[in-house]
């Protein structure tokens, strides 16, 4: 079935510099699925007079407004911060997690990256470890359990020494920060032909493993996190490099190499005692 969605009139046209732009008409193919156990299907919607200044999610908001004003159930999708940092938004857009713009989360994708008349396919992340909850909303709690397994540095408030007693070279701090920038969105898993969570897990192992504070738990951490990653049913990394391309924080697959090295040394080293945890 097909719906027509009219975008509310805006003050846009008064804008001198926006005068040239005009609304686009788009055809959306959206995955609808009532619940985890229901079977889903694609629905077609028309989004008409879409402003190029809209974000992708705002375009969906408008579609939903229209659906609801007709008493129909809106398309369920996750989002919260809408500024690319919380990692909640998670849409497969025309076969690319987070859509065509590089280093951009779905919520920061703007409609000007599409052209009038485009048809857009919108799907949820697909992975055994990310079951669909509804429509485009999936359950990513597997990521939390990977962190639970060892993605932390044990430190009790009140205990710590003065912060400046721990020196960290700027380069190390910067590398740690690059890895720590992960927003836990799951696009890496969604993109990986093997449904592997290696980029996510490697990023955390790299962030903590680089810092002096992270050393005592380093072996334990990598062994436990990798075991949990497998436990959750993610695939293995064969270095297709897809994840790195779609990661909104442009995290490099070097973190996966690092995870593998730490895993190897942990197994060779005394830290290899798996029962310790």
């Amino acid at each position: 079935m097909t719906h027509t969605v009219a975008e509310p009139a805006t003050a846009r046209d008064e804008a001198p510099h926006a005068a040239s732009r005009r609304g686009m008409n788009l055809t959306l193919h959206v995955w609808r699925q009532a619940g985890p156990r229901e079977k889903g299907r694609f629905e077609q919607y028309q989004a008409t007079n879409v402003s190029p200044d809209m974000s992708f999610l705002e375009m969906l908001d408008v579609v939903n407004e229209e659906l609801m004003s007709r008493g129909q159930e809106p398309i369920a999708f996750d989002s919260d911060c809408r500024e690319g940092i919380c990692g909640m938004c998670s849409l497969m857009i025309n076969g690319i997690p987070h859509g065509p713009s590089h280093g951009t989360a779905t919520c920061q994708l703007h409609m000007r990256t599409f052209r009038d008349g485009d048809s857009i396919t919108i799907e949820p992340w697909r992975a055994r470890a990310f079951p669909v909850i509804r429509d485009l909303v999936v359950d990513r709690s597997a990521f939390d359990r990977i962190i639970q397994a060892g993605g932390y540095i044990t430190a009790t408030p009140g205990g710590p020494r003065d912060a400046n007693e721990i020196l960290v070279s700027k380069t190390t701090a910067d590398m740690a920060m690059d890895a720590a920038a992960c927003i836990g969105c799951g696009a890496c898993v969604a993109a990986c032909p093997n449904g592997s969570a290696s980029l996510f897990t490697g990023a955390k192992i790299t962030h903590l493993g680089l810092l002096p504070q992270g050393q005592p738990e380093r072996n334990r951490r990598v062994l436990a996190m990798v075991a949990q990653m497998d436990e959750e049913g993610f695939g293995a990394c064969t270095f297709h490099g897809e994840c790195q391309e779609v990661c909104p924080k442009e995290i490099s697959i070097d973190v996966i190499a690092r995870m593998n090295r730490d895993f190897l040394t942990a197994n060779l080293g005394s830290g290899g005692k798996h029962d310790e945890s």
């Binding site: 932390y152 540095i153 430190a155 408030p157 205990g159 710590p160 020494r161 003065d162 912060a163 721990i166 960290v168 070279s169 700027k170 701090a173 740690a176 920060m177 720590a180 962030h207 903590l208 810092l211 504070q213 992270g214």
Partner: peptide, 12 residues
């Protein structure tokens, strides 16, 4: 102190 001990990568 607490955040650094936890591994928060503050600018250096």
């Amino acid at each position: 102190d607490q955040c650094v001990a936890q591994g928060v990568p503050f600018a250096r």
